[in-house]
Amino acid sequence: MSAGARSRNDGRTADRLLQVLLLFAREETLTATRIGEVSGIPQSTVYRLLDRLTASGFVRRRPDGYAAGPVAVQFAERYRTGALERTAIGPRLARLSRESGELAAFMVPVGTEALCVDSVEGSRVLRCCYTRGATQPLLRGATAHALLAHLPEARREAVYAAYGLPPGRVRELEAEHAEARRQGVAVSESALDQGVWGASSPVLDAEGVLVGTVTLMAPAAHTAQRRPHYIRLVKEAARDLSGGTI
């Protein structure tokens, strides 16, 4: 095997390992069969990947399948105590939630998913998928549009390809992302959760590279008149978190 072929093979294996690990961020327990169905990875390859992840401590075997292992848990705890709790994210989300009375979250892109790394519930009870540690497809909704709009073109194309989007839909999304960049915010209604309206604005570092997004979620039926106010609050929170290390 040539050096180039080995490099491509190693890269594909790394992508698949990451793909499997991301599944464990979404579900507590998975079988090898389920992993193959969701990921599209051949079953024999799934078992080889699980053997590697189990040996390294990222995954552990259970009677009913596989679950996140001790190393994965240590990573999550290290991120929570060593990084997230030392940033301005939590306090700024809490302020946004107080000012709006709604749920506020900070989302980051991970592979083809949007991961919620922190969230603060509002004064209303909202049945919403944006809870800490939850992931959603990086495909639809305000958060996905705000994240994709500020990712490099090659990264966006990789996401489109992973979801098998036809060219027409890609053109539609690219137009939406251009508008999100122009407005500095993306909005959606009932894209992920029925009856939930959302607004999401990007957080950029000092070089203008995407860090994540600030997202606000509210009941669509009861907040129509307040949406311009919510958009302003979300954009202000994102600006406050942008421009440095958080």
Results as ranks from 00 to 15, higher is better:
Met107Ser: 07
Met107Ala: 08
Val108Glu: 06
Pro109Lys: 05
Pro109Gly: 13
Val110Leu: 12
Val110His: 07
Gly111Met: 10
Gly111Ser: 12
Thr112Ala: 14
Glu113Tyr: 13
Glu113Pro: 13
Glu113Leu: 09
Glu113Gln: 14
Glu113Ile: 00
Ala114Gln: 13
Leu115Phe: 08
Asp118Gln: 09
Ser119Val: 04
Ser119Thr: 11
Val120Leu: 10
Glu121Met: 11
Ser123Glu: 15
Arg124His: 09
Val125Asp: 15
Leu126Cys: 04
Arg127Cys: 14
Arg127Phe: 14
Cys128Ala: 02
Cys129Asp: 05
Arg132Glu: 15
Gln136Pro: 04
Gln136Met: 12
Gln136Ile: 07
Pro137Cys: 00
Pro137Ile: 01
Pro137Asp: 00
Leu138Ile: 07
Leu139Arg: 09
Arg140Trp: 13
Arg140Glu: 15
Arg140Ser: 15
Thr143Asp: 11
Ala144Lys: 00
Ala144Gly: 07
Ala146Ile: 02
Leu147Met: 01
Leu148Ile: 01
Leu148His: 04
Ala149Leu: 05
Ala149Val: 13
His150Ala: 05
Leu151Thr: 07
Leu151Phe: 06
Leu151Gly: 00
Leu151Tyr: 07
Arg155Cys: 03
Arg156Tyr: 04
Glu157Ser: 10
Ala158Asn: 08
Ala158Ile: 03
Ala158Trp: 02
Tyr160Asp: 05
Ala162Gln: 00
Ala162Pro: 07
Tyr163Val: 01
Gly164Trp: 15
Leu165Tyr: 01
Leu165Ile: 03
Leu165Gln: 05
Leu165Phe: 03
